[in-house]
């Protein structure tokens, strides 16, 4: 159908696409509904074997699904924090992974964008966030995407040319417009999260102004596999600090093979915010979001380590101030 309707787009939950259509971010001749595709709503597996999730499973189902109780808790946490209960009952995992990168110069009505001057991402030729930039800096605003990277998930794409499997970090491109390696004729049909014989923990921390409605202005996903009280391998990714989810796995490596304590977690988190490059195109200032990054990495790591997330040592303050 997609090949016979050039320019058409796929719709599942519609919670990201329909507002964009109304604001004329996309001009499409037709929408192709994915909601009748077979197998899109299945969840199968467990922590040992891994879990396969149909792309059409709603965020609400995932937020409360027993298969995501243990090792994959970060995914349930991320889904549970997307927008509102209404959006979670409509929105799907596939849709959330592919949320159109956002920017508060872009997610505006047509008349607003016209008044501001159209931007690169739609109808214009400059980036209003970074005027000299040749590229678009819209922000990856998916809650589930950084978790998919942290859990090393693999996505199955179905298109005209058949099925192909792509690891989560290969699904995204560092560009606010051309943000995915998925081809226009392809749809995500399922997401596989690998199992592990080792004990695994994960956590997702989301920064936003209000505890409902708001997109992340920072997301931190971490996953730790354990070996007798020691971290065997740590993986992590940041959301909403770039045009794609940003891997921080390399920065978490000092945890590997060690028994994390307050000091080690703080030290690792303090360095792991390096790849975060928030710009002034979301709610609240990018300075603050940048400074919050290490605090939230620390909190996510502490939660995954089973210690009080709020009792960490790091602060978003530039220097410690005596109270």
């Amino acid at each position: 159908m997609a090949s016979s309707n050039p320019g058409s787009m796929f719709i599942a939950g519609g919670t990201d696409l329909v507002p964009n259509l109304k604001r004329r971010q996309f001009d499409v001749p037709a929408l192709i509904s994915l909601n009748a595709l077979p197998g899109m709503r299945l969840i199968d597996g467990d922590g040992e074997r891994g879990v396969t999730i149909g792309a059409g499973v709603t965020l609400d189902e995932l937020a409360h699904h027993p298969a995501l109780d243990g090792a994959y808790r970060a995914l349930a946490q991320a889904c549970d924090q997307v927008s509102t209960p209404q959006v979670r009952c409509m929105g799907t995992l596939g849709g959330n992974l592919l949320v159109d990168p956002r920017c508060n110069y872009y997610n505006q009505t047509y008349s607003w964008r016209k008044a501001a001057g159209f931007c690169l991402k739609k109808d214009g030729d400059i980036c209003l966030v970074a005027r000299s930039s040749p590229r678009c800096w819209a922000v990856s605003s998916s809650d589930s995407a950084p978790v998919a990277l942290a859990l090393d998930a693999t996505v199955t794409l179905h298109g005209v040319g058949g099925d192909r499997r792509v690891r989560a970090h290969e699904l995204y491109k560092d560009d606010g417009i051309d943000y995915t390696t998925k081809r226009a004729d392809e749809v995500i049909v399922s997401v596989e999260v690998p199992g592990s014989e080792a004990r695994m923990t994960s956590a997702y921390w989301k920064l936003r102004r209000r505890p409902a409605f708001d997109f992340p202005i920072l997301g931190v996903a971490v996953a730790l596999s354990w070996d007798d009280g020691m971290v065997r391998a740590a993986r992590g990714a940041l959301g909403a600090v770039g045009s794609r989810p940003v891997e921080i796995t390399a920065f978490l490596a000092p945890l590997n093979g060690r028994r994390p304590d307050d000091a080690l977690i703080a030290e690792v988190a303090d360095a792991a915010d390096k790849p975060a490059r928030p710009l002034d195109n979301t709610d609240l200032s990018h300075y603050w979001r940048k400074r919050m990054t290490r605090v939230y990495i620390e909190r996510a790591l502490r939660e995954a380590c089973g210690v009080d997330p709020l009792a960490g040592r790091l602060s978003a303050q530039v220097k410690a101030a005596a109270i």
Binding site: N104, N107, W112, A115
Partner: peptide
């Protein structure tokens, strides 16, 4: 830019 920064219920 001379405009309301975010005339929406989300922002």
């Amino acid at each position: 830019l001379g405009l309301h920064k975010f005339p929406s219920l989300l922002e």
